[in-house]
Design a protein around this nucleic acid. Structure first.
Lengths: 209, 209, 209, 209
DNA sequence: GATGAATGAGTATTCATTCAT
DNA sequence: GATGAATGAATACTCATTCAT
């Protein structure tokens, strides 16, 4: 009686699907959105045929990976907001410590083409809108708390996050970590109220492409 | 007209080389480091054969483009330092307004592979070292001036610059410009003395890979 | 209910087999002999697994479809011969109006490979021989009647039929029907006694490959 | 000063192009429109790359082969019309002996898809229209001569031709030849005035899809 | 020297067939 | 027995690089 036309999907198929998503996420981040499909399949431990049965082309795989990642971020934003005492602490923690958030943005910024594919997908857009709704609430709250400078919008937070998720050009992994932490701290310094006035206007979700 | 058999290169050959470099720079930035060689040749107005005569493979073209770009930056840093009254003003202007600097870093960060190619090239390294020498001087001077926070090294400036040269995920070009200006201003706010202490240590040139 | 272990096949299995044959016949005609097996299975309403259980490979499916079709034609030729008053009327009716005959020949002419597969199958050959025996009798009888020109053999009738079963290159289905009817009528005109002498000799069954 | 933007094409390139067209024509007829591109390339004695340089995809190759073939037929129809004393003789000779015409129609009838590709191409359509114009003139003239039955249009001739160009299901090549000659003769018998009235109406060019 | 033609290796994708559920 | 998931071989097409004109 389930209305779902694809039925509950067999357990082994489900496992394969998950493996593929996980592998694709890793491989996309490491090698970009143009990695050979064969490589994704291999690193998921399946044949290419299986990969293509689940995801009929590269686009649909990218979409699925993005959707999975966006969902994880949404869940995390919700739980962090519950755990942290203030909006500023929530923003800070997300900005500085969320691995899911990094992954999500790295996927979204992989390439022009990946960005378009993700942006055009209605499911992903829906989740993105939810995340942004929460972020806007956090921004307003943190400004009321007096911790976040007033001339900042949720879109600005998005922009700054998009900067911090890039790979850092470091000599080694330890230094890369330090770069991330220092740049993050410095940007948090910049975000703290009151700050010298910024040019332009508060950026909102719609300003992001 | 010197007797030296390699040196003066015929004028038209020189022109070809310059056209290719200019075209490649544009095309690399617009389409990434994997654009078909044919496309580069076409947009330079020459045949692929000519492209390959000048630059025996993609690597060598990338190296040449990088070298050209790094040289321009070196020249610019020198002239800006002469024109501006303070070290802080020099840093600010470079960070906020140097197109050459943006282009140079965008090339260097095009891709993992491009980064390696550039980094490994001795000629480019030489120029980069000169640029960094000047930058270190500027950092020290600006800290003496009391404008730049003390816990920052030239490497940190490099890191922050590397963030700001990325393409911004904007809905349109105007907003993209605003994103750049606002993010730059906010980071400059963060750079201003004194700031809350940053984690780790001052980063120096050697920390960049 | 016989004790024989292979014979009666379970009713549902029988139904599956019939559905597959019917679907395959339709799909082969519509899409050629290379349609994906999955598509045949789908249009028969079964899984590929079931298709392969019944027919271990494409060849055996083609053979089975052909055999089924040839049997239907044999039955039809017999009944038409009984119903029509003259041999010429029988030939005319078969040539102009038999859907089974069209289908059979279309299958046999689907492709070089399909033709070979069918031709090589002993069961199909047997049925074909019976059909041809009847056709030869009809030809002789019609020539005795004086309606069919004398320099024609059963093989010639086969050839002319093979022409008429092709898809006509018509702008729409109605015109296609008209093409078929007009070409059929014109060929019947050509078949009528006496006619100008044809080159070569009467063609017989053995001349068909 | 030639306006032709692609310049006169190099002699060796021209030769390759011609070889590819010739090879493709043969291979398409022998193996259908889905032969591996590699096979076409091989039988033309070039690499696949060369094939793709000249014809960016299978469609464009099919179009080019068709155009070439249609042009040959147009030329032949013109010259045969000049050589033969009557319109009926012209029609007869084309129908019975034109190899170019057979090839052209076999290409056009290769497959549903090939037919569409060819039909949609404006260049090919133009040539086809010219051929048909000539054919219509011939039909009218032959009917005036009293040789061709009156209830036939140029479209009918096209239909009958389309029947005769199919591969005959013969045991060997010699018999296949005989089948073609006999079927042709019989159809010519059917075409001769006056004939028993055909159903429907005269078919014209527009009736062909 | 310049040009653009030729080559062939690299990758995406499809589908026949096998096999676990 | 039925199902549909997994596999991998086959094939289209792209592009870096070489070489004839």
């Amino acid at each position: 009686m389930t209305a779902d036309s694809h039925a509950p999907i067999r357990a082994d198929a489900r496992r394969n699907r998950d493996q593929i998503l996980a592998a694709a996420k890793v491989v996309f981040q490491a090698q970009g959105p143009d990695v050979p499909m064969e490589e994704i399949a291999r690193s998921a431990g399946v044949g290419v045929g299986t990969l293509y049965r689940r995801f009929p082309d590269r686009e649909s795989l990218i979409r699925a990976v993005a959707q999975d990642s966006f969902e994880r971020v949404l869940a995390e934003v919700r739980s962090v907001a519950l755990e942290e005492p203030t909006a500023w602490a929530t923003i800070t923690r997300l900005l500085a410590h969320s691995r899911e958030l990094r992954v999500m943005l790295q996927l979204a910024l992989l390439s022009e083409r990946a960005h378009e594919i993700i942006t055009r997908d209605p499911a992903v857009r829906g989740i993105r809108d939810e995340i942004f709704g929460l972020l806007e609430d956090l921004v307003v709250a943190a400004q009321r708390e007096g911790s976040l400078r007033a001339d900042i919008g949720a879109g600005d937070i998005g922009v700054l996050l998009s900067l911090l998720v890039r790979t850092f050009p470091a000599a080694d992994a330890e230094v890369a970590g330090m770069m991330l932490h220092r740049a993050t701290a410095l940007i948090l310094d910049g975000l703290r109220a009151p700050g010298t006035p910024l040019p332009g206007r508060r950026l909102v979700q719609g300003d992001l492409g």
